[in-house]
Design a protein around this nucleic acid. Structure first.
Length: 197
DNA sequence: ATTACGATCATCT
DNA sequence: GATGATCGTAATC
């Protein structure tokens, strides 16, 4: 299989450079990159097609806005740290800390398009909750790194994609910021952006 | 085609 | 005790 471990060497450095930017830029960078899940002798891989940027302490919609707690601690970690939280009594959501250690900006991974080798249903990673269910992502991964061997969930280099932009989904504060980025050509994108009129 | 609702629990007040 | 970065199904247009 093509992605049988975390990124290393020059690939890792390029990914780290992309993540070490403010959330909106890091989110654009993450579009088209690949999430790899190694679980029970199986390797699942999917290309990220939809993300949202959360700007940390200055963003009323961000979890970090309410302060640093045991749950949100990974947001302050180095770029590539996973932040996973549980929501609505049944779903998990996957975030990746970006910018730099000590700055709680992050990117929510909302949808991905499975690559051939994983043999997943094409729409099985459409939406943040479904993506986590399909890739078996839960609270155990919160605080782990996208570059650590023992995470079993990694970020690998894919292609870069032209980003369509909209406001973010499912939030009630800071609803007008254009911080959702998606691949308009992908069927795996979760929802059509709400009309802005 | 769009809107409404219930499920269900970690986390914070 | 209230809330929520969702999803699937059901009801209504």
């Amino acid at each position: 299989v093509r992605f049988n471990g975390p990124a290393r060497g020059a690939e890792k450095q390029r990914l780290l450079a992309g993540l070490s930017q403010p959330p909106a830029s890091a989110a654009r960078f993450l579009l088209g990159q690949v999430v790899v899940r190694r679980i029970a002798r199986r390797t699942l891989a999917a290309r990220i097609v939809e993300v949202e940027a959360y700007e940390g302490e200055g963003d009323p919609a961000a979890h970090a806005f309410r302060g640093r707690t045991a749950r949100t601690e990974p947001l302050w970690g180095p770029p590539g740290t996973f932040y996973v939280y549980f929501i609505y009594g049944m779903h998990y959501c996957l975030n990746i800390a970006v910018e730099r250690r000590g700055e709680p900006g992050c990117v929510l991974v909302r949808a991905a398009e499975p690559l051939e080798e994983g043999r997943l249903e094409p729409l099985s990673c459409r939406g943040p909750g479904r993506l986590c269910r399909t890739l078996a992502i839960d609270l155990q991964l919160s605080g782990r790194s996208a570059f650590a061997l023992d995470s079993g969930l990694w970020l690998r280099e894919g292609g870069r994609v032209e980003a369509a932009v909209s406001t973010r989904i499912g939030i009630s504060a800071a609803t007008d910021r254009p911080l959702r980025f998606f691949d308009a050509g992908s069927r795996a994108v979760s929802a059509r952006p709400r009309d802005r009129s």
